[in-house]
C-alpha cells in the first residue's frame, strides 16, 4: 500500500488531502498517471511542471521509484520563511 498526500493549494484544488493506493509499484510519473486516470479532473492540477514531489519525505523527481510502504507527497512550490 502507498500513502499519497497533497498539500496547500493543491489539496484544495483536488478536494483531498490524503489517499491510499493498493498494489502500486513504479515511478512517480506513473503514479501520477494512475491518479489522473482515476480522477480525470485532477490532471490540470497534478500534471503540472510546477508541482513538487517528495518520496518518503525527501524531495524527488518524476523518475524516482515508488513501492509498497512508501509515502508520496505532491505539493505546490514552497513559500515559507
Amino acid at each position: 500500500m502507498i500513502k499519497v498526500l497533497f498539500f496547500a493549494r493543491l489539496r484544495q484544488q483536488l478536494g483531498m488531502g490524503e489517499l491510499r493506493l493498493e498494489d502500486f509499484s513504479g515511478t512517480v510519473r506513473s503514479l501520477c498517471a494512475v491518479l489522473c486516470e482515476r480522477y480525470p479532473q485532477w490532471r490540470e492540477h497534478l500534471d503540472d511542471d510546477a508541482i513538487r514531489v517528495a518520496v518518503n519525505q525527501e524531495l524527488a523527481d518524476s523518475d524516482a521509484s515508488v513501492a509498497a510502504g512508501d509515502e508520496v507527497a505532491f505539493f505546490p512550490p514552497v513559500t515559507g520563511g
Binding site: 498539500f7 524531495l59 513559500t79 515559507g80 520563511g81
Partner: peptide
Amino acid sequence: LKTEAPFW
C-alpha cells in the same frame, strides 16, 4: 528553506 522546506 525558502525553496525546499515544506511550508505554504
